[in-house]
């Protein structure tokens, strides 16, 4: 593709496409600073709704819960996904390897409705038989999110390990390090950027998940996307605009951070290859 040769028509369609994607978000951000109570009528600039937002206990607690779940599920899925990626990339061919790989990554392609529903059924059954988990809430949401996020982490880590020069690990073994030590002192530091970016990926997946969460949440546990969804159903409200703007800000920061980290690692690797 040659960027220079985009025709006038091409520019127009590109502009239209980008506008279609981003103008709504822009309007949302602009209107979050609207003084009026009416969403569609511009009055004057004000940060009033942000004040309302930060004093809304339901929003604050939902935001807290979402952050907690996102943090815990991305931490867990990074641990499990790294182990799974390591097994797939390093442990030669073993019986049932492709089945294992397929099942690990299935949640990526499986409709979330199916994942959510099947996990709901599982938890209901478990409760009947073992009395655990006693009720649906943070724990069940966490398990659901880990299932989803781990699939993505596994794919990222596995591909990073496959492209990594194995002789570096062999050299460590040759110099007297045992497999465990090699993993923690050689492999892990080398793939650290991939782990960090897969953590951020898992975090963004978890924090804005609505479908799986809807199936697995209970009465006392409302995450931020759930709260927004339920409020919007009652009618648009400038406070929600402010909330959405905050969400856009957080997600943008995370994505930019992940991107920069990957670019940095990529550059370092390129320099190493060129040297």
């Amino acid at each position: 593709m040659q960027n220079k040769d985009i025709s006038g028509f091409g520019k127009l369609t590109l502009g239209a496409g980008l506008a279609f994607l981003y103008v709504p978000i822009l309007i949302l951000i602009v209107y979050s600073f609207n003084a009026s109570k009416l969403v569609t009528v511009w009055a004057s600039f004000s940060t009033h709704w942000y004040g309302v937002l930060f004093n809304d206990d339901a929003v604050v607690s939902a935001f807290g819960l979402s952050l907690k779940i996102a943090f815990l599920s991305s931490a867990m899925s990074v641990v499990l996904g790294t182990i799974a990626g390591l097994v797939l990339a390093r442990f030669g061919p073993f019986r049932g390897k492709s089945l294992f790989a397929g099942m690990l990554t299935a949640p990526m392609v499986m409709p979330e409705v199916i994942t959510g529903l099947s996990m709901l059924l599982l938890f209901v059954e478990l409760q009947q038989w073992f009395g655990f988990p006693a009720e649906r809430g943070m724990l069940t949401i966490w398990v659901g999110h880990v299932t989803l996020c781990m699939a993505y982490v596994t794919v990222v880590i596995r591909s990073r390990l496959v492209e990594m020069d194995r002789s570096v690990e062999e050299a460590a073994m040759d110099l007297g390090a045992r497999p465990f030590k090699i993993f923690f002192q050689i492999t892990l530091p080398i793939i650290a950027p991939a782990i960090a970016s897969s953590f951020l990926l898992a975090f963004t997946l978890s924090i804005d998940d609505l479908v799986i969460t809807a199936f697995l949440s209970g009465p006392g546990s409302t995450t931020l996307p759930q709260l927004i969804f339920s409020r919007v159903r009652l009618g648009l409200n400038p406070e929600i605009n402010a909330l959405a703007t905050m969400t856009v800000l957080v997600v943008t920061l995370l994505v930019v951070g992940a991107n920069r980290m990957m670019v940095k690692a990529e550059r370092r690797r390129a320099r190493l290859a060129a040297a």
Binding site: D165, S167, V168, E170, A171, A172, M173, D174, L175, G176, A177, R178, I186, P189, I190, R268, L272
Partner: peptide, 27 residues
């Protein structure tokens, strides 16, 4: 391999990219 009194210099050198020269030698 980690029990043998044998060391190898790899074709690709296989230096540890996250360690300095001194740390590589000390490993």
């Amino acid at each position: 391999p980690y029990e043998r009194p044998i060391n190898m210099m790899f074709q690709s050198y296989a230096l540890f990219p996250h360690m300095t020269v001194a740390q590589n030698i000390a490993f």
